[in-house]
Design a protein around this nucleic acid. Structure first.
Length: 775
DNA sequence: GTAAGCTCACTGACCGTC
DNA sequence: GGACGGTCAGTGAGCTTA
């Protein structure tokens, strides 16, 4: 039986079902665009507009409402992650088709092209797998199985692959020690199948040592370096991944990388230097890695004054006298020492304004002449002139230049590259779950090439790096400790440790922190179940911030305090109580705002972002908090007057509200496992996750917020691991992340409650948050 | 005050893909 | 063939400028 032919929303001609209802194309598109968007539509009329072909454009709010009323389901709209996967799949299939069309007809092509084509052809098995079913294991997909891939734990060989004799290059090469692989093999491994590049990077760069070794080889070969760079420009997520493998401070690497992509001219300039003088670059990076605190500072410097950073690179490169020492080990050693000294001094100059006479280069004072000469002679070399080496920027492949033109010069957005990491507007739980199977290490090769999984690793390394900085009596430790404890005026470890030098924590607060009991048994050994010090501090900061939730209530709650009288849904006389309840939420929101302001990561944001996050997230945070104050026996919220005194407020007051708010709230509460619901730490971390939602409207620095949110996702994961055994922790994490989606859903109902009251009767704060206009 | 020009968000139709 | 997403031309509101 054919479906009805008229759109159930507007009555226009319909072709079939869209999002679970018979609709026209325009209502389909309208719903797709708006159902998941966080826009707050307002009805210019009386909230009850008739939606017809003619009037459907007049009121978005009523149109969307009607879409929902007739049964359109926003769950049917693909998430950003789903869309990303689908896009990848489509791209793969297109690539496959192109190969099929041109296969075997390029016998006279360039030998290098043949090599790449051969590698791609080898990967056709993977493409087939993806074209058919992503679950297929016929090619021994690294994504399949339980993570027992030939990686991470060692080279145990590929998983059983009995259905085909053609293994993808990744599986064949997984048997080889990455340290023994040649540059072209490494690059081929990475670029052969863009869809599996992430896993390939995991295999050839299992450790930092291997990553450095691989990059040394690659940048030692211009051809391979260019091939890899071409790939990385197309797949910046892979570049980020490589950087995170190499650098000690992956957060900074991410930031630098973002900057790099937003400024292709400088990027190409740096690439040209890397290609031109690989040894210098490697030594420079190695030196940075030997002194992570300098690396962090210098990267911060790089971000704040990129021109100065480029100048620094010029100093390093131009300081090289140009002689090649490959044939003379002694000369090479001397040059290496000189280079290290030069790098040390340049770093010191960058950080402190003058060449160091301190310990870091004290043993190399004899090289001062060689060091300071290029510094003084090159005051401020223009980049176009300073690049005096043999590399012509236009030597880069046309593809690179083309991409460079496409990239915006300053904006952080990449409108034509929406599959890139920085442009994913949603970082919801679903996408984060995708990377959860990684078991803390991308080495497992389980994850798809998702930015979320990379970020997960980045955040893990961030904590690791934090601990690695800590030595007994270290002033760095103390400074970071204080800053990360939420006392820093401007910086936390979220922004790189270099900023910790600016901490302004008070003595009193320090003492308070130091007297705090550890949340779990202290441990500085990474990946123990207990939270490490950095994780404890982050959680402790939340707990301290949550003190604001017990600020005295100055409102009169007496009318709302629980009594034995049950609410009848149709008792219209009780509706003033709903209004009181609504206004009471203003108190809760004020407390949440105070709490947010005590979180250093929040405080350090620009005001616009703070407002956007609070406007968009305060009710979701309130809902999240409501689960812990919910008294199941009394069906009431235990609202704290103070930390000691509470008032019971019946949840069935929600029955006065239009819609199914009460039922939805009950559903939300009852499906929340009590042991998690009663764990203040869990709820606090989830509040933070909700607060740092990058997809809020009018947010400016989405990427920065996403990083903060991910750090809390990670903290939640680690906290669960510290209190539950493995499987239970995993399960809890997944289910709790789903709860964040539930909060979002429930919040939509809640917002309707606010929108359905007379704005003149609600608190000004609420009017501001919900953009309510007085009638 | 107003018309012209510009920008930007939104809409709807069409097409590609699975 | 159904159901989804992507794309692009058209449209109109809002802003600036002459």
């Amino acid at each position: 039986m054919s479906p009805p032919k008229n759109c159930a929303v507007c009555g226009d001609k319909a072709l079939g079902y869209n999002f679970n209802a018979v609709t026209c194309e325009s209502c389909k598109a309208f719903f797709r665009r708006n159902a998941l968007a966080k826009k707050q539509f307002t009805c210019p009329f009386n909230q009850n507009c008739e939606i017809t072909v003619v009037t459907r454009r007049f009121c978005q709010k009523c149109r969307l409402k009607k879409c929902l009323d007739i049964g359109m389901k926003s769950e049917n709209i693909m998430s950003e992650e789903d869309k990303l996967i689908k896009r990848r799949k489509i791209e793969n299939n297109r690539a496959k088709r192109r190969m099929m069309e041109h296969g075997g007809s390029d016998g006279d092509a360039d030998p290098d092209d043949n090599k790449v084509a051969g590698a791609v052809a080898d990967s056709s098995c993977n493409l087939d797998t993806y074209a058919g079913s992503q679950d297929s294991q016929s090619c021994g997909s690294p994504d399949s199985g339980s993570g027992a891939h030939a990686n991470g734990g060692g080279t145990t060989g590929p998983t059983s692959s009995t259905t085909t004799t053609t293994k993808p290059p990744s599986d064949r090469l997984a048997l080889v020690n990455p340290l023994l692989m040649t540059a072209d093999k490494i690059v081929d491994e990475i670029v052969a199948d863009p869809d599996r590049a992430s896993q390939a990077i995991n295999r050839v760069m299992r450790t930092q040592k291997e990553a450095i070794s691989a990059m040394e080889k690659i940048i030692g070969s211009q051809k391979d370096a260019l091939k890899l760079v071409s790939h990385l420009i197309d797949y910046p997520g892979d570049a980020l991944k490589i950087i995170s493998k190499i650098m000690n401070s992956p957060f900074n690497a991410l930031t630098v990388f973002t900057k790099f992509m937003s400024s292709p001219t400088d990027g190409l300039e740096i690439i040209s230097k890397i290609v031109d003088s690989p040894k210098d670059v490697v030594e420079f990076m190695q030196n940075l890695m030997r002194s992570p605190e300098n690396a962090i500072d210098i990267m911060n410097k790089f971000m704040n004054t990129p021109a100065e950073a480029l100048k620094m690179l010029n100093r390093i490169f131009n300081g090289n006298d140009g002689r090649k020492a490959e044939d003379d080990p002694e000369t090479l050693q001397q040059q290496t020492q000189a280079q290290n000294a030069r790098v040390d001094t340049v770093i010191h100059t960058m950080l402190h304004g003058s060449p160091s006479s301190g310990s870091s280069v004290s043993s190399l004072n004899t090289l001062d002449t060689a060091v300071t000469s290029p510094l003084s002679s090159i005051a401020s070399p223009p980049m176009s002139n300073s690049n005096s080496g043999p590399i012509d920027l236009h030597y880069q492949s046309p593809k690179i230049n083309h991409k460079s033109e496409e990239l915006p010069s300053t904006s952080g957005n990449y409108p034509h590259h929406h599959h890139y990491m920085a442009n994913s507007p949603e970082m919801g739980g679903k996408s984060f779950l995708q990377g959860y199977g990684d078991e803390y290490s991308l080495d497992s090769g389980l994850s798809i090439n998702s930015i979320e999984s990379v970020l997960s690793e980045v955040i893990r390394l961030e904590y690791q790096a934090f601990n690695s900085l800590q030595t007994p009596g270290s002033h760095i430790k103390d400074e970071i400790y204080h800053a990360a404890g939420g006392m820093s005026s401007s910086t936390t470890y979220d922004q790189g440790y270099g900023g910790c030098k600016t901490t302004t924590s008070s003595q009193q607060q320090q003492q308070h922190l130091q007297h705090q009991q550890p949340i779990c048994a202290p441990s500085s050994i990474f990946m123990e179940r207990d939270l490490n010090e950095a994780e404890q501090m982050k959680l402790r900061e939340l707990r301290m911030a949550s003190e604001a939730l017990y600020d005295p209530v100055d409102e009169d709650l007496s009318a709302l305090i629980m009594n034995d009288e049950r609410i009848k849904p149709d008792d219209a006389r009780q509706s003033p109580k709903l209004l009181q309840l609504i206004n009471l939420t203003a108190v809760a929101i004020k407390r949440l705002i105070k709490m947010a302001k005590k979180i250093s990561a929040f405080r350090d944001m620009c005001q616009e972002d703070q407002v956007a996050l609070l406007k968009g997230g305060c009710t979701e945070m309130m809902i999240m908090r409501s689960v812990i104050i919910y008294d199941n026996d009394r069906a009431a919220w235990k609202v704290p007057f103070t930390k000691e005194n509470t008032a019971n407020i019946r949840t069935d007051l929600l029955k006065f509200a239009k819609g199914n708010v009460y039922e939805e709230h009950q559903k939300f509460i009852t499906t929340f496992d009590e042991k998690w619901r009663m764990d203040d730490n869990i709820i606090l971390i989830m509040c933070a996750i909700v607060l740092f939602t990058p997809a809020r409207s009018r947010v400016i620095h989405k990427d920065a917020i996403r990083l903060d949110q991910n750090s809390y996702y990670y903290l939640l994961r680690r906290y669960l691991e510290s209190v539950y055994p493995g499987c239970e922790a995993k399960n809890a994490f997944i289910r709790l992340i789903q709860k964040i989606s539930d909060v979002e859903r429930l919040n939509k109902f809640m917002i309707n409650v606010y929108l359905n009251v007379n704005p003149s009767q609600v608190e000004p704060l609420l009017r501001e948050i919900f953009d309510l206009k007085n009638h």
